[in-house]
Computed example of a mutant assay.
Amino acid sequence: MICIGVANQKGGVGKTTTAINVATALAATGWRVLLVDLDPQGNASTGLGVGQAQRSHSSYDLLTAQCSLADAVVPTKVPRLDLVPATVDLSGAEIELVEMDQRTHRLRNALAGAPGRWDICLIDCPPSLGLLTINAMVAADSLLVPLQCEFFALEGLSQLLQTIDRIRARFNPALAILGVALTMYDRRNNLTEQVAEDVRTCLGGVVFDTVIPRNVRLSEAPSHGVPALIYDHRCPGSEAYIALARELIGRLPPSARAA
């Protein structure tokens, strides 16, 4: 199972929306997908229609070894897409993990017990660079970085890149950036165009060709408990995420694509 972390320490960049819709697009093409909600806000769980009553076990229980991965997983409305939901208990996990053995490898060890059940795992990280995100980066083979087309985007990205370098040096030498996805793109805004140009100049080919536009359907879908690809698969946002998933698959190792 290949594992991809969806990470950016800045909030409001479309990270959870990206995780949900890329996971849905991958499942629609036949991949068996596991989405791990590692954000205490639990937005990915809510966005996939998994209510509090269905979260008897969560990613918190998984990290603290109070349940197995098989017990934590719940099915979603999307065929071939399973979820490890999040609860507010995760908000205290940062403090609790400090006292635990292998505190940076808890998620990696938990996911190691699922050979063959899923082809790919996406981890929706919280908007911070704390122990939860570090656990995701240690567990991941690569990272998908949503980047909002705004003035402070590059400044935040530099902090993330420094953290990735530290994770490589200490815990996960193989960690790579699979790609940077430009989100909330508005062609009518000159600043958006300038930021996109600056990011591509700075990072080159690591930036995906596909850009995710500002689209009201992407914002409406979570309130209905379904991904935008199901809520309105013909809207510009859904079409962009389908294209992004196709591009992402093309960047995976041949052995993973064959799965």
Results as ranks from 00 to 15, higher is better:
residue 85 P to E: 11
residue 85 P to F: 10
residue 85 P to W: 09
residue 85 P to K: 11
residue 85 P to I: 10
residue 85 P to H: 06
residue 86 A to H: 03
residue 86 A to R: 02
residue 86 A to N: 02
residue 87 T to H: 07
residue 87 T to G: 07
residue 88 V to A: 14
residue 89 D to V: 02
residue 89 D to Y: 03
residue 89 D to R: 12
residue 89 D to E: 14
residue 90 L to I: 00
residue 90 L to A: 08
residue 90 L to M: 05
residue 90 L to P: 05
residue 90 L to C: 06
residue 91 S to P: 00
residue 91 S to A: 15
residue 91 S to H: 12
residue 92 G to I: 05
residue 92 G to H: 06
residue 92 G to L: 07
residue 92 G to E: 05
residue 93 A to R: 00
residue 93 A to F: 01
residue 93 A to S: 13
residue 93 A to M: 03
residue 93 A to I: 06
residue 93 A to H: 03
residue 94 E to S: 06
residue 94 E to F: 01
residue 94 E to T: 04
residue 94 E to W: 04
residue 95 I to C: 01
residue 95 I to V: 14
residue 95 I to H: 02
residue 95 I to Y: 06
residue 95 I to M: 13
residue 96 E to V: 06
residue 96 E to Q: 12
residue 96 E to H: 03
residue 97 L to T: 11
residue 97 L to S: 09
residue 97 L to G: 07
residue 98 V to T: 12
residue 98 V to C: 05
residue 99 E to D: 14
residue 99 E to V: 11
residue 99 E to C: 02
residue 99 E to K: 15
residue 99 E to W: 06
residue 100 M to N: 08
residue 100 M to I: 08
residue 100 M to K: 14
residue 101 D to G: 15
residue 101 D to N: 13
residue 101 D to P: 13
residue 101 D to V: 13
residue 101 D to H: 12
residue 102 Q to K: 11
residue 102 Q to M: 10
residue 102 Q to N: 13
residue 102 Q to C: 10
residue 102 Q to L: 10
residue 103 R to W: 00
residue 103 R to L: 07
residue 103 R to V: 09
residue 103 R to S: 09
residue 103 R to F: 02
residue 103 R to Q: 10
residue 103 R to D: 09
residue 104 T to C: 10
residue 104 T to H: 15
residue 104 T to Y: 14
residue 104 T to I: 11
residue 104 T to S: 12
residue 104 T to F: 14
residue 105 H to E: 15
residue 105 H to P: 02
residue 105 H to T: 13
residue 105 H to R: 15
residue 105 H to C: 10
residue 105 H to D: 14
residue 105 H to S: 15
residue 106 R to F: 08
residue 106 R to A: 10
residue 106 R to S: 00
residue 106 R to E: 01
residue 107 L to R: 02
residue 107 L to Y: 04
residue 108 R to G: 04
residue 108 R to W: 08
residue 108 R to A: 11
residue 108 R to T: 00
residue 108 R to Q: 12
residue 109 N to D: 15
residue 109 N to W: 05
residue 109 N to E: 13
residue 110 A to Q: 06
residue 110 A to T: 01
residue 110 A to E: 04
residue 110 A to W: 00
residue 110 A to L: 00
residue 110 A to I: 01
residue 111 L to C: 01
residue 111 L to S: 05
residue 111 L to F: 05
residue 111 L to K: 02
residue 111 L to E: 01
residue 112 A to N: 04
residue 112 A to F: 00
residue 112 A to L: 03
residue 112 A to C: 01
residue 112 A to R: 08
residue 113 G to I: 01
residue 114 A to L: 13
residue 114 A to I: 13
residue 114 A to Q: 12
